[in-house]
Amino acid sequence: MMAQRGYWANLRTGLRTVWTGLRLTFRHLKQARRRRAPVPIWDPSYFRQPDGQVTIRYPHEAIPVPDTGRYRLHNHIDDCIGCLKCARVCPVDCITIETIKAVEDLGTTSNGQKKRLWIARFDIDMAKCCYCGLCTMVCPTECLTMTKVHDFSEFDRDNMVYHFANLTPEEAEEKRRLAEAAAARPTAPVREGASEKPAAGSGKPAFAPRAVPRGQSAPPGQAGAPATRPAFAPGAVPGPEPEQSGEAEPKAETSSPQAEERKPTPRPFVFKRKES
């Protein structure tokens, strides 16, 4: 390259480019007296920053996050109906929910939905969360939202698990006992045996307590529930599935053969995911 350019042309270019470069850096050196203001994005000058230092000294100052910022999750637990949609949609499985069927009336959420379950546990592991926001979209009561809090690093990873449930363990135990008592009240020997089986076999504490009462208590109050909400069927599979041989089978038979056929397909999906 140098040989083709000619010695003097090369020398001239060299000197000129060095000089240009030095001038450029010196200009920046002089401009370092000024600095970029930490203005938010809605400020008109955000994209028209003058020359000078661009560093924002973060912990001391920060560019304000808009109120619509979508960072840390928050669950307004009073509105949560424990529908599990968020836990199921989450691609990284970072939401863990435990519900207990309520025997008493829990009232309604702020948008008028009926609450039927106690939320014994609602944990979100923000260390796993990928901030996709899917959980907030599926929430029927819009109680799960993203907030603009974005700086919540911790020294201990366990502190990244956020607990939103408002029942104490004792209260939860109490509710669980009540729910079991209620489930046992219209006692039939067949059911007693059936309820034993899945609880031992499933090994899924998060789902077993919920799945068992719902599947069991079908005849009195909740008979329509699984039918009207097909979305729940896959999630409920691990629990009630073994029972189907004993009790729920007739129901399936009465519905339709296609439904029977379709049913297994979603099952492996759900099962696999929950297992991992």
Binding site: H28, Q31, A32, R35, Q53, V54, R57
Partner: peptide, 13 residues
């Protein structure tokens, strides 16, 4: 500091 200022940074603070 010189390198920081030339590169529009703030340097050690």
């Amino acid at each position: 500091k010189v390198s920081a200022f030339i590169q529009d940074r703030v340097g050690p603070l």
